[in-house]
Computed example of a mutant assay.
Amino acid sequence: MTFPSPLTGVVPPVCTPLTPEREVDVRSLLRLVDHLVAGGVHGLFVLGSTSEAAYLTDRQRALVVETVAGHLGGRLPLLAGAIDMTTPRVLDHVRAVAAAGADAVVVTAPFYTRTHPAEIARHYRLVAAASPVPVLAYDIPVAVHSKLPAELVLELAADGVLAGLKDSSGDMTGFRQVLTGLQAHAGASGFSVLTGSETVVDAALAMGADGAVPGLANVDPHGYVRLYRLCRAGDQERARAEQDRLCALFGLVGVGAPARMGGSSSGLGAFKAALHLRGIIDCPATAEPQVPLSPEEVERVGKFLAAAGLL
């Protein structure tokens, strides 16, 4: 399909259901895609952090993109992560996901070694020059240890290098600088600014964001689509109430005991447990070496779902 300019709305970063043997569960993935489409989302993003892309083999990554692209059949824009340490490796992923059916790619700054902003800019320019599909920047310093400076994003937007930004930095000041800076860059028209936050979507949209990429939308796509529509309609009171409900539901990411697991194990484990409890995926397994939730922690996830009216 033609990639929209700008991309707007709710674009969930799709979880990757796994079998107990840690292979991609294609049947569950198809059910999850149907669940999200039925929720009214405006696009899908595979092979991001919530998709556990860092844990998947290249074979598994290709299977995810081919499965989702084939099932969507062009009904919605499909973004795919092309995430790796260096430019040559990213370019390999770009070619693979574009060939598998992705409408756009989402790319982080290089990582592993410390990277200068000039190198980050060169990275994006090289990727965009070789990519057959639009390139969005993924600002996620917790994973790559580099924050994308607002002035760099604006420069690349104005030059037509980037088609958009997925901001998962948690830096609302920098996020606002990008939004306000775009107004002074006529060459950046059509550039999409998307928040990766679950908990401040209403505030991001009020600042001028085009949409959101919330992991919790896997669990409650209807809620995030409802929130987006309320914000666009200017119904601030009901939008705030919906955001507050989603913030309470987001508490499920903290069910895992921090003494025995990290935040990724707890958060992704909770998303998958919720999807399993809702009957959408067959198995809540996360990729190795993440630690699985205990039965007691899964029970707590169920309580969050019940409180949000989802069970």
Rank of each mutant, 00 (worst) to 15 (best):
V11D: 03
P13A: 10
V14E: 01
C15H: 12
S28G: 14
L32S: 01
V33T: 10
L36Y: 02
V37L: 11
G43L: 00
L44V: 04
V46M: 01
V46H: 00
L47Q: 03
T50H: 13
S51G: 15
A53H: 11
R59Q: 13
L63E: 11
V64F: 01
V68A: 03
G70H: 13
L72H: 09
L72T: 08
P77R: 04
L79A: 05
G81R: 03
T87E: 10
A100L: 06
P110H: 01
P117R: 10
H123G: 05
R125E: 15
V127C: 02
S131Y: 04
P134M: 08
V135K: 11
Y138D: 05
H145W: 10
S146L: 11
E151N: 13
A158Y: 04
L162P: 02
G164D: 04
S168H: 10
S168Y: 10
S168I: 12
T173Q: 14
F175N: 06
F175S: 09
V178T: 04
L179V: 09
G181E: 07
A186D: 14
S192M: 00
L194C: 08
S197E: 12
T199F: 10
A206T: 14
D210A: 04
G211V: 06
G211T: 07
V213W: 00
G215H: 04
G215C: 08
D220H: 14
P221Y: 03
R229L: 12
D235E: 14
Q236H: 14
E237R: 15
E237Y: 04
E242R: 06
L249Y: 12
F250D: 13
L252M: 15
R260I: 06
M261S: 02
A270R: 01
F271E: 07
A273V: 05
G279S: 11
E288N: 13
P289L: 10
P292D: 06
E296A: 15
E296T: 13
R300Y: 00
